[in-house]
Amino acid sequence: METASNNQITEEEKDILQEVMNISFGKASADLTDVINAYVVLSVPDVTLLKAEKLPDYIRDDIKDYNSISIIEQNFWGKFKGICFLIFPSRSGRKLVAMLGEGDDSFEQSDTMAVLEKETLIEVGNILIGACVGKVAELLSEVVTYSPPRVIFEDSPKKNISKDIFEPESMAIIMKTIFSFEGQDINGFLFLVTSQESFGWLKVALHRFMERYE
């Protein structure tokens, strides 16, 4: 019974997590504006508990209106551990390059525009993911490290992520936000997914977070 309770997130804990997400994404948004000189709007995050194997279906449902997409994934490590998916509609790379006004040396050194677009997607993805994950971790007094981000699809009509990222039977918490850059026609989805492995730590951290306010 002990393990069962350790592996389940209660409604109350989900509410605390929602609160943590609201605060941290608010902070992330402010800091991001500072870093990339564009106001990043992050929608109120949506917290869902799901069986891990349902994840691709869940994501597919959200992006059904996009013709083709680019997906960037990045793992983060620590007691708070999981994977992030950043989904941009196609041609976002080009818009990001324009937004950041990349006229610096890196452009001249790059082979083609395609490389620049892809690397800009990765760079912005890395910063967005790092801001969101980092702020959640910070609020829960944890430090995380990251693997390099990867582009898993680029302007591809295949809209799916692998089913096998987690144990199919395990549960996952999915934190979803819609991000956009103010004044720019660039937006997409950020899915922050943490598996059952982190639940034990998360429960303790969430209660500790609440204690500070009680």
Binding site: A28, V35, G101, Q109, E119, I122, G134
Partner: peptide, 27 residues
Amino acid sequence: DTPRFNRNCKSVFKLGNFCFFSQKLHK
């Protein structure tokens, strides 16, 4: 001293981010 390098440094200081400069773009 480029916007990209400075932006990435800022994101490390500000957000505690990790940044990756791949050979593909930066050489």
